[in-house]
Design a protein around this nucleic acid. Structure first.
Lengths: 203, 203
DNA sequence: GTTGTAGATGACTGTTTAGTCAAGTTCGAG
DNA sequence: CTCGAACTTGACTAAACAGTCATCTACAAC
């Protein structure tokens, strides 16, 4: 086992275990066992369980961010960004289901809604990532309004509504291990913006 | 302390503690301390922690059900039922915030999304109640389509979308302790059904 | 007033938890 | 070869955990 390998395995084990069950149900021992790392090494790399979980949230976000950056690229028409994002969600969750055997929804959202109440570092990180994701929507909506592709209005409020719908759909998909709602997202999500359907291609 | 009082206090303590934090973060000892009941009495009334939580879910549902029955009364026009329900959500969460000092969203939904993965009695009960709630929406939508107040379509799929939006909004409201999104619900929820706005009063 | 029963009590068990630590190993730089 | 730093190890602690139990109390039925 090469240098730094154990650390990575711990982070990945934390992501796998917490995503497939929950923050509260996963112990340090369970993470260590899955990562094949001894307890002492765990605390060599991380100050606490929460420290690892924060790192896990950041690491996971690090894998999603470039994908989102591409989808929400400013070089793309704003409504097309959203359209691609909605399509991406069900594709992505299909991959997750293949990898983990189950639809899991959004990692940091699941952690976040479990840990909201006591303001720990974990809760703060989860909220930070949640907000970062919402801002992608916000920017796309603002741009869409700017070029008249969407009727004027408060883009922050619209992004909140749309985000609520998306996260709600992801959570339902997780609870019922059902991709159906997500597959409909490219059609139905536009309704939450007051549009009858997806925008027409302007080729 | 009169007969059965301790049992009720245990159930209420479980609701309070779990709703304000999470299932995994609340211990039997914490519930006992809050209810001012000794450990032995706990296991006199309940076979296990999970047994109490199932009872707590049922008890809480028992307080919401008559309210929902009234709102979704068949003697009311179906779109008016939905309109009242959307209004009720933000009113109710306003009450919750006053009582608990924080917006908490939906009790059984929070428990359910935390416990989905391992099929326990708690997870089963939470899913049962979640489905029961969704059926109120389903019936109203079917009735609305039946009398032509809503364009024809699959009422089950429409109820799923609407339910995703409502639960998403409730979860966001919980995470950010923010009633704003819920206050907008009576306006925005109709969009998820493909309608421009709330139905007109037919007096 | 004896007895049955529902409830209350606190001390108990065994397990799991997060986190610690001293003593090891590995390995590259000087 | 030597040294130090990065890393590993397994045994350890103290607290928290769910759940048990014999014993006590209150009270209602007879």
């Amino acid at each position: 086992m090469s240098r730094g390998d154990a650390r990575d395995r711990l982070v990945q084990a934390a992501i796998d275990l917490i995503w497939t069950s929950s923050y509260g149900a996963v112990s340090v021992d369970a993470i260590c066992e899955r990562a094949q790392v001894r307890k002492g090494s765990f605390y060599h790399f991380f100050a606490s369980k929460d420290d690892l979980v924060v790192t896990a949230l950041d690491t996971h976000w690090g894998t999603r961010r470039p994908v989102l950056d591409e989808i929400f690229s400013a070089s793309r028409p704003p409504l097309q960004r959203l359209q691609r994002y909605f399509a991406h969600i069900s594709e992505r969750q299909g991959e997750v289901r293949e990898q983990y055997g189950r639809v899991l929804g959004c990692f940091h959202h699941a952690v976040g809604s479990e840990c909201v109440q006591k303001p720990t570092a974990v809760a703060a990180k989860a909220q930070e990532l949640s907000l970062a994701l919402r801002r992608y929507l916000e920017t796309a909506l603002r741009d869409a309004q700017g070029e008249g592709a969407l009727p004027p209005g408060d883009p922050v409020a619209a992004a909140k509504s749309l985000f609520a719908f998306v996260t709600g759909a992801l959570t339902q998909a997780r609870v019922h291990d059902d991709l159906e709602l997500l597959r409909q997202l490219p059609q139905t999500a536009w309704l939450a913006l007051g549009m009858a359907g997806p925008p027409q291609r302007s080729t």
